[in-house]
Amino acid sequence: MRIALFLTCLGDAVQPEVGRATVTLLERLGHEVVFPADQTCCGQMHVNTGYQREAVPLVRHHVETFEPYDVIVAPSGSCVGCVRHQHAMVARGAHDDRLAERADAVAARTYELSELLVDVLGVEDVGAYYPHRVTYHPTCHSLRMLRVGDKPLRLLRHVRGMTLVELPEADQCCGFGGTFALKNADTSTAMLADKMRNVLSTGAEVAAAGDASCLMHIGGGLSRLRSGTRTIHLAEILAST
């Protein structure tokens, strides 16, 4: 299958290893990955911070960039959430119904990584080997916007050599919330503290998630504490052999 990779701005600029892992994984499964070079950002931060007008050119650009592809994958639950639930809304808010229709069409072909693997490609065992103690944070947007359910866990359970430890209060938000982490830094930190406490209580070496932004948040906290536990993206575990 020919799959277009939407890496997301954070993935491109800050965590390129996530994109590389996604490419490795999908190619290992026998698929062709293409990277539309014009891609930039889905505009989620703009929309969620109230700058919908500023998000319109980003939505238009995203739609134009990805319209030619039949299957699009992003290793980020929240960016797929934005594409699926907000792009058309932003277009309609700008009274551009044509753009809204096109955005809906692109959204219908856009999948979060675990959705692509389990629902579209029909695999749960991707042949990965990762000899570490891992706990998994399901992230709010994957859980409640996309409803990916236990798909990531089904993928992880097939990884060889890995000990998967259940994360207490896993469904609780880590406190990132985009600009929330800056505007309400104190509350965000209080939420992060509890998330880290739960992560550390598992004794895991690695905390995994399917969203670069949450990983940056949790990882930033764990690193500040010199906790010895690090974060990793789901794609990187699945790409390991």
Binding site: F35, T189, L192
Partner: peptide, 25 residues
């Protein structure tokens, strides 16, 4: 500031040596 609100309690990631698009290219 305003990013100091982030680094008050979390480390910020150090930008990578190479972005994905550079790697891809």
């Amino acid at each position: 500031p305003p990013l100091s609100a982030w680094t008050a309690s979390r480390d910020a990631p150090r930008p990578p040596a190479e972005t994905f698009r550079e790697w891809w290219a």
